[in-house]
């Protein structure tokens, strides 16, 4: 029999409405309020061993302490599953359900599930950290909500893998994963094309992105002859032993190396570890990727003020947008704090 803990607010615990929203955290044995409907749906498959109750205001007044109390309680009782809510379209209650579920999943490794109206505020905040099933916007939909909570919750408690969100009847958690299908690609592609040709509805299997963020170009360098210029590359140019272990593709790391070291180019010499282009000509002469020779000549002529003491490198192939944005941000902050005025980024 699956042992379940259940989290609800003061209203569903029968303590009272808004006037009792400061009711403190407490733990009761067995099922309370909607927990009884959950037990009915469970039948002989499971039971609610304890109900955690907290007022909507008191939860958020000290969320950290209340979460610690939940963790301490479930750490002792070790349930197979935590169900929170359903909280429907409630703001504070929904956020409390999300926070409790996220903490219990992440810190105790216990599967968690809550039920929310898809547009409830807690959905965007916690969707990636706990399983959520969609409900109506009010407790009038309790019966249906309990059924889907129990059905999906029992799968989680029994250690079954998640299936695609629409197959499970869940709110999507914000990530994509491969799934096995028995409908061939060629058949799907042809059906989609013929529907499009007929003017019928069709559903793309990948949605196009929201409009990308526009990056305005920086202002022109006012005094080039006094500007310090840095070299940055995504061409994977690193010392030959790759001391910072920058990845050949799907990079998550960047590093900077002294240009004096690059100029010497022996012990260690530089090479490209980039897996997205044929690097033999760069290995033969790194100036082809990081044009230090040309920049030093311009500095000697007085065209630019000087070359920054370090060049920066990462690998730009298969890199995710998330890591790309983070690395760009980190490199830019370092360059600014070093007083660099402008950057030449060489790309493959």
């Amino acid at each position: 029999m699956v042992r379940i803990a259940h989290y609800i607010n003061q209203f569903f615990a029968g303590i009272g409405g808004e006037e009792k929203a400061d009711a403190p955290f407490e733990v009761r044995d067995g099922a309370v309020g909607p927990g009884r409907a959950i037990e009915m749906a469970l039948g002989a498959e499971g039971e609610i061993i304890q109900t955690l109750v907290c007022g909507d205001n008191s939860f958020h007044a000290d969320a950290e302490a209340n979460i610690e109390a939940v963790i301490a309680s479930l750490g002792r009782s070790k349930p197979d599953l935590l169900i929170a809510g359903p909280a429907f379209n409630a703001g504070r209650y929904g956020l409390a359900c999300g926070a409790v579920c996220a903490a219990v999943s992440e810190r105790l490794g216990i599967p968690t599930i809550t039920g929310l109206f898809p547009e409830a505020p807690a959905v965007d905040v916690y969707r990636s950290r706990t399983v959520m099933v969609p409900t109506g916007d009010s407790a009038a939909g309790m019966k249906g909500a309990v059924e889907v909570l129990v059905r999906t919750g029992m799968r989680l408690a029994q250690g079954e893998q998640l299936r695609p969100a629409d197959v499970d009847g869940r709110i999507p958690m914000g990530f994509r994963r491969s799934w096995v299908t028995d409908i061939p690609v060629a058949h799907r592609a042809t059906e989609m094309l013929l529907a499009k040709l007929r003017g019928d509805a069709f559903a793309s299997e990948v949605a196009l992105p929201e409009g990308a963020e526009a990056i305005p170009p920086a202002a022109a360098v006012a005094e080039l002859s006094s500007a310090t210029i840095a070299l940055v590359t995504e061409g994977g140019l690193v010392p030959e032993d790759n001391p910072d272990r920058i990845e050949s593709s799907s990079a998550t790391k960047w590093a900077r190396y002294p240009i004096s070291m690059l100029e010497r180019n022996e012990n260690p010499s530089f090479k490209s570890i980039h897996a997205g282009y044929d690097s033999q000509w760069v290995d033969a002469d790194p100036d082809r990727m990081v044009p230090l020779d040309a920049l030093k000549a311009l500095a000697a002529e007085g065209v630019i003020g000087g070359v920054h003491d370090y060049f920066y490198a990462t690998t730009g192939t298969g890199t995710t947008v998330t890591h790309g944005e983070r690395m760009g941000d980190e490199i830019a902050k370092q360059l600014i704090s070093d007083g660099v005025h402008a950057v030449i980024v060489t790309s493959t």
Partner: peptide, 30 residues
């Protein structure tokens, strides 16, 4: 009219945008 067959590259955890490059006309992707 077109349909495009594409693999996805949303990172190991699947949270990133899955396509390398898109055009607004690619509204039917397998």
């Amino acid at each position: 009219k077109t349909t495009v067959v594409s693999s996805e590259a949303a990172g190991a955890d699947g949270y990133d945008f899955p396509l390398f490059y898109t055009v607004p006309e690619a509204d039917a992707i397998v």
